[in-house]
Amino acid sequence: MITESMYQELILEHYKHPQGRGLREPYDTEVHHVNPTCGDEITLRVKVESGKVADVSYEGQGCSISQAAASVLHELTAGATVTESLTVVDEFTRLMQGRGKVEADEEVLGDAIAFAGVAKFPARVKCALLAWMAYKDAVVRSS
């Protein structure tokens, strides 16, 4: 069934047990992004130290896809270099905007590959991308 490809165990796991959730100090930049079509929102903070992402902290509300995506984002970016993290963001964005026809690089994406099924649902792509776009915005602003 379609749902099984979309609501992978991994997504539900991140939704039920989000990683790195909560807003923390210190931080360089805080951004607030909303998805006006569904009211999903996220506040996200980034702390960069000598080219490395020292912390990504966030608070948000919304559907399982948007919240799980924020959790996976935290996992993949915290501790990485800024450059590495932006490569992951670009690959995730490419996967999400590929209408389910893109073969994504699992090496780069890690757990985020679980969102591949979401790309087939245009209405949900924005949910998956919410935290990731907020992160990109925050990183650009902090540099």
Partner: peptide
Amino acid sequence: HPHDVGQVLDDVFGIAVRVGHHCAR
């Protein structure tokens, strides 16, 4: 979240409902 409700209803049962703020935010 209603988006999750709507998606599962649709994907598993073919039930079409509307989810969101229905143009009445």
